[in-house]
Design a binder for these strands. Structure first.
Lengths: 113, 113
DNA sequence: TATTATGCCTAGAAACTCTAAGTAAATACA
DNA sequence: TGTATTTACTTAGAGTTTCTAGGCATAATA
């Protein structure tokens, strides 16, 4: 298997929103979760993830809250907002439209009027 | 339907190779074909398409040949090369791996060991 | 004759990812 | 106890790809 995370370009936002819709997470956790769940396929680099989270927060799609652990360590948990939910719903349909369009290209004449 | 061609980022190469595998085409035709077949979804801008074709040609995945029409107009037809075929085969499996990984993220616990 | 369609090309801005580094503290291990 | 690893976040800069926006030239059409 050859991981090609560059296929993610443009849809990493959706992926992050999707994850955070399932449960709030902090950056480091997201990196680990994505790798674990995708069986090593997705390896978000920190230089990719954190700026992405910051962009999403600045856009109001997620909000981050610092949390201090008993051991003194700090984490920034991100929560999806109402605006984020709406955006995700939109992006889901956009993804489906995209895949539909792709299919039309890849299978010419399948059901073209 | 909201077209989001930015979802294409990183996979426009595959899309072009796919098209040219079906039949050789020239740039202007590709723009029209993509729009027609995808029912208006894909609207490759010329500023995107031509540099992409040049990149593919420089990489040896396609070759372009000028053709003069009887009316004096010229077209540059692009043909997929053997190297291009191989690359496309690879990218197809990469796409499937990508979609598989995506599914694992979007449907957590579906079949995780 | 003027407009539209055909057909190609490119420069520069914008967006996103990666590399690569830094900062800091807790934990594991020898 | 000292060192390495893990946890956890941040950012600067380079590279890639797309879009905007324009240019050039000829043929068909109104």
């Amino acid at each position: 298997m050859v991981p090609r995370s560059d296929l993610l370009k443009g849809s990493s936002n959706s992926l992050l929103l999707c994850l955070l819709e399932q449960q709030p997470m902090y950056g480091y956790q997201i990196v680990k979760e994505l790798a674990a769940r995708s069986q090593g396929y997705f390896k978000f680099k920190e230089g990719t993830l954190y700026p992405a989270l910051h962009r999403l927060e600045k856009s109001g799609l997620i909000t981050g809250k610092w949390q201090m652990l008993p051991n003194g360590r700090r984490r920034r948990y991100y929560y999806i907002t109402a605006k984020g939910h709406a955006k995700l719903a939109l992006e889901r349909t956009q993804w489906q439209d995209f895949l539909k369009a792709l299919k039309l290209i890849l299978q010419p004449g399948a059901s073209n009027p």
